[in-house]
Design a protein around this nucleic acid. Sequence first.
DNA 1: TTGTATTTTCAAAATATTCTGAAACTTTAA
DNA 2: TTAAAGTTTCAGAATATTTTGAAAATACAA
Lengths: 168, 168
Amino acid sequence: MKLNEAKQQFIQSWGAIGTQWGINRTMAQIHALLLVSADPLSADDIMEELQISRGNTNMNVRELIDWRLVEKVLKAGERKEFFIAEKDIWKVAMRITSERKRRELDPMIKVLENIGEIEGDKKDKDVKAFTDTVGQLQKFAKQADKAFDNLVKVDEHWFTGTILKLFK
Amino acid sequence: MKLNEAKQQFIQSWGAIGTQWGINRTMAQIHALLLVSADPLSADDIMEELQISRGNTNMNVRELIDWRLVEKVLKAGERKEFFIAEKDIWKVAMRITSERKRRELDPMIKVLENIGEIEGDKKDKDVKAFTDTVGQLQKFAKQADKAFDNLVKVDEHWFTGTILKLFK
DNA sequence: TTGTATTTTCAAAATATTCTGAAACTTTAA
DNA sequence: TTAAAGTTTCAGAATATTTTGAAAATACAA
């Protein structure tokens, strides 16, 4: 299998998987392209490689930067911006996890907090069913929130060596 | 806050969160409705409560059953089918996790497996960049796969008591 | 059987999301 | 300054997804 062939296959497949993840196809493709590129690419490189418009490229690169999966790189003597992806897959996974938590778990916690006390007979089976489910969800959401925070925190400390120092 | 008011708020918010999760709004709403209902509901009940069509109701209830979040219930003397949601939030979370793994991680593993050996100079930086990233992804995906399987497995055994028996 | 209640399917309509490309804006070098 | 290179924005077009509702299929009682 030739390199370019394999690259193209990887990029296309990654785009398809992206949609399953609820992620924009183009965003996933640009990420894939940058992940397997040795050098930083410019917007024009990306447009050329993926056959997409400048606007689309710009929007999705910006989104990838928001997710902290891609960084802007400046080359000496060049006016253009270049882009490079974080290559450490563990870090990539942590950042995607953080972002998904922010988009999926945090709004859930907010919704649950905003549900007020229910008026009426607390022994009523309908009132019970509601408060019981909402209560369980609240408990679960808070636990999950802590678990994710710890996962990401431990990971950051691992890299900076903070945890090892605790054992000295 | 009145019960019906709170229910309606919960259902609408859950629908909105669902879309963030990459889940169909109606599916999330039906799930929310069943989660906070004391008794099983019929398709007509769901249509009435959420103001949606029969086709939409049928499709999404079926999808929820596929996810093992909802079960069909038959009432004596009634010809209609009724539906009830799994109320144990931990079980719900495990089932959603399993389904997401199936939809998100499994296709990723498949894609990575299908990428063949790259022809050409293995010292070339472009070849290196590609094989290195794909290699890292493969390693990560397999670890994640095992981790999720174990999570779900431990959980099932926990409920059936299999793990406690191991310590006897 | 036949008729009635119920569920399922699916083409077309409605809605939502993504993409394009050109204009507006910004940055930098001369 | 000016102008050229580059980036961003966003209205409208293209795509994709979801929803409706009526017809077909199925299940059941008489």
